[in-house]
Each structure stands twice: as structure tokens, then as C-alpha cells.
Amino acid sequence: MTLEGKCAATQLLHLAALVALADGSVTSQEEDHLLAHLERSINLGRAERERLEAHLRWLTATKPSLSGIKKRVEGLSGDHRERLGEFLVTVAGADGTLATSEIGTLQKIYERIGIDPSRLYQHIHALSTEMVDSGPITIISPLERPREFGVPSPRTETSAGPGGGIRLNIAMVEKKLQQSAAVSVLLADVFSGEDEGGPPVGIQAAVAPADIVTGLDAAHSVLLRRLAGQDSWPRAEFDALADSMSLMPEGAIDRINEAAYETVGEPLVEDEDPLVVDRRVLGEMIR
């Protein structure tokens, strides 16, 4: 590892220790996540890993402070700062929880390194939906300044293909299709399911069983059959009809339409003045 790399690693370690320590202790998961990341991104040798581990332990013991952070990230571009922030979020969340104090520290770091704090919440949210790229994140050393013999800086990856066109991940599309098919089945069950509860108990007066409409009690069944006599009902006339049968108009429409939804999937009458009876729905209800 180059000297620069090592500097980058210690700087990163400093920030990460700040975050990890915010909830009082660096958990073993947080430590592993951090060191594993460093190992992946800057080719740590065994000895170097041990030194960084020791450094981390030293940081843990001395409780690093937030001061001087601005200087540490001076050389970083906006994009790299954002990635740095994203990485720090993964460190804080490596143990599966994110304490308020950790979020608080992250808020302070984001402010100091010049990223809009609202991005922080998006990053945390993304982590909780696993949208964060879990692969190595390239973070340039703050000390890495352009030199004539320097390695060209890594290009940032974007989801856009050449010429701004889109590339779709076919495997992902397949997965989404399967999931959507499953969700369709689940919801279709809900939206076409028979009413398990059955009709609520109501008055079963002297009405011939054949005249009872599925899903309705005797009184509403009679009302429905009377409704069938006309294509449209002025509101006052309907109210009087319902009243003559000791039913309340609004409640009766709701009740009848609910039964219509259960049997046909559409309402029988539009609740306006005049009420219009849907013949097709009616036909299916009193088959």
C-alpha cells in the first residue's frame, strides 16, 4: 500500500470511528464492515490490516472529535463526498440498528463535509431498502492531488448506457415480473374473493326464498326488485319507496351496492338524482 493509500485509510477510519462510536461503542460488526471495506478498496496486506485495527482501537480509546473534518475532505469532489457519506451510513448501520446518536453524528458530519443533510435521510432509507451498492465504494484520499504521474481518477459509474440510453437488467425485470404476478394473485384473491362473512343478519320477513337476492336480507331484496321496475328513480320517489319499507335511503343504496360489488364487482345504482339502475348489473344480481 502506498503512503497515500494509508493516509486515506486512516482518514476514513477516523470518520468511520466517529460514526461508529456515536452510540457508545464500536461493535464487532461495525469494525468488521469497516476493515473489510478498507481491505477491498485499497488492497490491505495482513500487516497493514493489523496496523489499521490497532489504529482503530486507538481511535476508540481516544474518542476522536468532529473538529478538522472539513480539512480532511478538502480535496474531495461533491460526488466523492456523497459516496463517503453513503459509506459512513453503512458503517453506522452495519450492526443492524441505527441509534439516534449515530444519526446525530452523521448529520453533523454531512453538514461539515458539505452534503445536504436531506441526502443523509435518503441514504439511510436506501440502506433500509437495500438499495445501496454493497460493493466496494471508491473513496479518494483527501491527500490525493492531481500529479503528472498520478493514476487517472476512477470514473463514476452511472446506470445510463452509452449515449444516455437505458440498459435494463433482464434478470431483474424477470424477478419483478414474477413478484408482480405473485402480488396480482394475492390481490386478485382480495378483490374477487367471496364475502366470507355472509350477509349480516337482518329481517327475514315473509319473503319467498326464491325472491331473496344473494347478499341481501328480505327487506333489501324486496326493495331491489321494486327498483328493477324502473330504469331511473327521482331521488324523492326512491326515498319514499325506501321509507315505505322501513328502510333508510342512503343506507339501503350502500347495502344494495355492496351486494352488487360482491356479486358483479360493480355498483347497481349511481348515487345521484335521479338514481340510475344499471340493467346489466341488475341482470347478474337477480339471475
Binding site: L247, M248, P249, E250, G251, A252, I253, D254, R255
Partner: peptide
């Protein structure tokens, strides 16, 4: 509607 269904 809800009130009327209760009352009904």
C-alpha cells in the same frame, strides 16, 4: 350511509 345502515 354508515349511519343509516346502523339505524336500518
Amino acid at each position: 350511509s354508515v349511519v343509516e345502515r346502523f339505524v336500518t
